[in-house]
Design a protein around this nucleic acid. Structure first.
Lengths: 341, 341
DNA sequence: CTGTTAGCGCATTCAC
DNA sequence: GTGAATGCGCTAACAG
């Protein structure tokens, strides 16, 4: 079994091209001034040797890792996937790599991931939500890099924020349903507060109900968040079973709303006549579903994209010795009226 | 504006604990033998200083980056998200970080990403599919690290493979529909071969049709792959318009199948009576939808998970100087009979 | 169980 | 436009 030759280094390229490593280093980035023929010789050597630049060595020396860390609750949720896409797009061309991980909606896992991410010396970090363990919070506070919290409006932000109030968005939806004449409005969500944004939406529902004088709130808690399509379907059945008088249901997300609508279709419960259903998030599924689902549009891609822009500016600021001020970007949401309510 | 103090290094911790950096280094990994009280002193120093290990420096020295690179076509497709999840889970506990990026179904972008990933010196790389640009192929061949191609059965694999034949899976579906009595079967997919797995599925459809003596194949090409739910809906309308005699339609993915089913519902075309619809991928949406969608189940999570296991073994093998042999793991698929066909 | 020495592969900084 | 010296922060390999 032949031992593989060690990968060529910059020194190998330099030797082959008859220049110093410094010249190779310069030739390999864009802005440098190199004699055209020198560069050509170097590029040929690079090609001959199959040389690939080693960024980890470079970043040790330059003290710039070229990483941005991002934590999202789940990679399987298209809302967060959109945010990740927005972030990636914002970072494209900046030379920054996204280091993505998912917390599985667990604050403990988030803490652990923040720790392991920080060991890679990211130049900025994006987290979802404003709830963190004490240690996670401390890690973020002490990280010395720009921190952006997203998808929420934390009362006491770590630093920068790009998000919206989930409670307000939920309230807007209750008011919308109220305006359409619905009074006996229920809320379908998960059994725990693990999904803090889900919990906020529920809280928003309850406070809106109270404000409207609709005092008997009906909450079905079903399954560990995030609740699935299937669980949404099961929940709506339980809802109608428990409170047959119910007129409308707000689901914690479009996924569960979809499950609920489909289960109603299956049981020939007319939506919205028998029961109106609304979701949250404006997933593609909601516009495409029949009946199309009334929901709250939140600008997932924008959240990621604007977080990316903000963090680019922040990194730039740090580097220039002029840190940007604490910033909170509030993204819009809107009730999207469709057929299910 | 105060200049932030530079982050503490291992030397700072060592000084504070009255030991050498080597001892600190040992205390910070698990398997090392350290006097319990020394370790305690070190941990206290770490805590006092808020020290965070710098892995990039470590990996330069140890020549182990702790990265595994993975490229998927899209982060917004739950099939690939599942694969990424399977990979992450397989890697959990190994100390390896997933470096995830998406190619947007473009071979050019894949090439570019392979290049930039390789600069981070990953210890293995996972790509989706077996079609790569010549340069990408060369980069993979010369990378010197384990390569796993997934979601496909390349004719000439780079090295390891975890996947299945999309064409065969598609053929199985055609045969299933044929067995149910359908003869005028159409295929709905994207307009280009950008999505190579989609193209394979179409090819499988055509060859199965020919084998069954159903010579007039009906193919609706609609939209740039990956085609959306909405486009699936539009395509089915065009299909019925063009070939009113059509009895069944196979959609390139469950997403488009779902769109098609919903559009049929909207138009009161009974599924499967007026037209049967089948998808591909077994997304959650298909089981939950009404009518539930007949599809081909492919084991997305498993693909990622087994690719992860394989690559862990391969990395281990390389390290031990005993590279594992070229391996091809064929994952299962199965037609899942539901109501839409 | 702990310390010493010697780099890892590059980019910074200063020369010229 | 190019080169030499130096060190980033850590760990491998040895020694004790």
């Amino acid at each position: 079994m032949t031992k593989r030759a060690p990968a060529p280094t910059m020194a190998d390229v330099a030797a082959r091209a008859g220049v110093s490593t410094m010249t190779v280093s310069r030739a390999l980035k864009d802005g440098a001034s190199i004699a055209p023929d020198t560069r050509l010789r170097i590029m040929k050597a690079v090609d001959d040797l199959g040389y690939v630049l080693d960024l980890s060595a470079g970043s040790l020396s330059s003290k710039r890792s070229g990483f941005v860390a991002a934590l999202i609750p789940s990679i399987n949720n298209s809302n967060f996937a959109d945010t990740a896409r927005g972030l990636t797009d914002a970072l494209a061309g900046s030379g920054l790599q996204l280091l993505l991980a998912y917390t599985d909606y667990s604050m403990e896992k988030e803490e652990e991931l923040i720790g392991s991410m920080l060991r890679r010396r990211p130049e900025a970090i994006v987290v979802t939500g404003g709830s963190h363990t004490a240690r996670a919070r401390k890690l973020l506070d002490n990280s010395g890099i720009p921190v952006v919290e997203t998808w929420d409006l934390p009362k006491r932000p770590v630093r920068h924020v790009v998000g919206f109030s989930n409670a307000e968005a939920s309230k807007a939806l209750v008011r919308y349903l109220h305006g359409k004449g619905y009074r006996r409005i229920a809320f379908i969500g998960g059994t725990t507060n693990r999904d803090t944004r889900g919990a906020d939406r529920r809280a928003g529902y309850e406070s809106a109900m109270a404000e409207l004088g609709l005092n008997e709130s009906r909450v079905i808690s079903f399954g560990t968040p995030p609740i699935s399509m299937k669980q949404g379907g099961e929940a709506v059945v339980r809802l109608v079973d428990e409170w047959p008088e119910v007129e409308a249901a707000i689901c914690v997300s479009d996924l569960s709303a979809f499950g609920a609508v489909m289960e109603c279709n299956r049981r020939k419960w007319k939506v919205p006549q028998r029961i109106a259903i609304a979701g949250f998030g404006d997933f593609e599924i909601s516009s495409c579903c029949h009946p199309a689902i009334t929901t709250v549009g939140v600008h997932c891609y924008d959240i990621g994209n604007r977080a990316g822009d903000l963090l680019l500016r922040a990194i730039e600021g740090e580097r220039a010795g002029a840190p940007v001020a604490r910033e909170t970007i509030i993204t819009k949401f809107e009730v999207i009226a469709r057929d299910s309510a």
